[in-house]
Amino acid sequence: MTERMLTVADAAVLLGTWKTSGERFPRRLVAERRIRYVKVGSHVRIPESAIQEYLTAHTVEPVQRRRRRRYGRAA
């Protein structure tokens, strides 16, 4: 079971935050312990599956809107 371990920069690219906030967002997730990570000495590595779990848990599905009746109910 060899899982790919990502650097914080790689995690930022997968999360799509590289251009806007750089490594700041993944580092905040680690600091707030909102995502799994591994500490190797002074280096932080994030399992690729942790990124997928985070994205799945925070995905918002669209709501099906009911069609409104054009006219109100008849009395």
Results as ranks from 00 to 15, higher is better:
39 K>M: 14
48 E>V: 09
51 I>Y: 00
47 P>T: 08
15 L>Q: 07
36 R>L: 12
2 T>D: 14
26 P>W: 00
58 H>A: 01
53 E>Y: 04
75 A>E: 13
67 R>F: 13
32 E>M: 06
41 G>R: 06
66 R>G: 05
22 G>H: 03
53 E>P: 03
54 Y>L: 12
8 V>C: 13
31 A>F: 06
57 A>C: 02
63 V>M: 11
38 V>R: 15
20 T>R: 15
7 T>Q: 08
6 L>D: 05
7 T>K: 07
45 R>P: 03
14 L>G: 01
75 A>D: 11
29 L>D: 04
24 R>C: 10
38 V>G: 00
67 R>Q: 11
36 R>T: 11
54 Y>A: 05
62 P>R: 13
10 D>C: 08
58 H>V: 03
35 I>W: 07
51 I>S: 01
39 K>Y: 05
53 E>G: 06
33 R>F: 06
52 Q>G: 00
42 S>K: 09
37 Y>A: 12
50 A>D: 00
24 R>I: 01
30 V>Y: 03
21 S>W: 08
13 V>R: 14
27 R>M: 12
54 Y>I: 01
49 S>N: 02
52 Q>E: 10
31 A>K: 15
3 E>F: 04
25 F>C: 08
4 R>V: 12
44 V>A: 04
23 E>K: 13
7 T>V: 11
50 A>Y: 07
21 S>D: 07
36 R>P: 02
70 R>M: 12
59 T>E: 10
15 L>N: 09
61 E>F: 14
16 G>A: 12
65 R>H: 10
56 T>L: 13
19 K>F: 08
38 V>W: 08
64 Q>W: 10
9 A>Q: 14
5 M>H: 08
28 R>W: 07
66 R>H: 08
35 I>L: 15
18 W>H: 12
12 A>W: 11
20 T>C: 04
50 A>E: 04
46 I>P: 03
62 P>V: 09
55 L>M: 15
8 V>L: 10
72 G>K: 12
50 A>Q: 02
55 L>N: 03
38 V>C: 09
22 G>A: 05
44 V>F: 07
20 T>D: 11
57 A>Y: 06
43 H>F: 10
53 E>F: 05
52 Q>L: 12
16 G>H: 11
16 G>Q: 10
50 A>R: 03
43 H>L: 13
35 I>C: 08
32 E>H: 06
66 R>M: 11
45 R>Q: 06
48 E>T: 03
52 Q>W: 03
64 Q>K: 10
44 V>P: 00
51 I>A: 05
15 L>Y: 09
17 T>Y: 15
25 F>N: 05
39 K>R: 15
34 R>A: 15
